[in-house]
Design a protein around this nucleic acid. Structure first.
Lengths: 120, 120
DNA sequence: AGCACATAGATGCAGATGCATCAATATTGA
DNA sequence: TCAATATTGATGCATCTGCATCTATGTGCT
């Protein structure tokens, strides 16, 4: 459902959102794929291919890693940041419509509080 | 888990089991793909491809349908029946180990009764 | 009959999943 | 130091999912 909303808006799938968000959090130094994999809870090969696709779309880039020549550092590009930003309202609208929209006002508040407790 | 047990035994995936079973039930006249799709709860294209693969493996065959030239009738081959038969003990063992094995004897009986109520 | 529309099924494409395995580099221990 | 081993990440292969679209045939209406 989020997927179809994103598709309709000509935006990439949800998994990209998560990845891009983590990459933004990681900052300009980038992040090692293994670490990203742990955050996203993906199998290694899945992340490798996700990075392929996102890189092909110009949303991320792989930098060579000075401390370990086997690996690299990944980071978002400006385009990646832009795309994630455009994804957010679509995502948020679906969440709002489908989740919050089905709750009583009191429940909504309770949910907001609960979510607020979840660490970034 | 059932999947890996089947793979270890060099047998096809679970979806094939269901399909082969329905085909056996349908008998020698075969069954129309649409009808099979309803029984298996698969999207049309998924069934089409499943039939491709099973046919390639020699487990099913498509017969031309006299009453509607757009479609055909599908049925199992002897090899299909044989394969399904060899899949069953593997499947059953996993079910037994993982499900029944975690229940008290009384619960097992209750489960068996419940399952018995589910129409074929 | 003839044309619009519906239905059966296949297929191209992109992505994802899972497995196995590879190449390159790191680390460890004798 | 050097060989065995471990780790990082990529990749080949098959399957599977979902979407869109195609072909061929069937059906209904005029």
């Amino acid at each position: 459902m989020v997927e179809s909303a994103l598709r309709d808006a000509d935006l990439p799938p949800l998994a990209w959102y998560d990845a891009l968000l983590e990459l933004e959090r990681a900052g300009d130094d980038g992040i090692r794929p293994l670490e990203l994999r742990d955050k996203l809870l993906l199998p290694q090969y899945a992340l490798s291919r996700l990075l392929d696709r996102m890189e092909k779309a110009g949303l991320t880039e792989r930098l060579s890693c000075p401390s370990d020549k086997r690996g690299h550092l990944v980071r978002t590009t400006g385009r990646g940041r832009d795309t994630r930003t455009r994804m957010w309202p679509v995502y948020a609208k679906v969440l709002n419509d489908r989740i919050a929209g089905n709750l009583e006002p009191g429940d909504r508040l309770a949910l907001a509080k609960l979510l607020g407790k979840i660490p970034e």
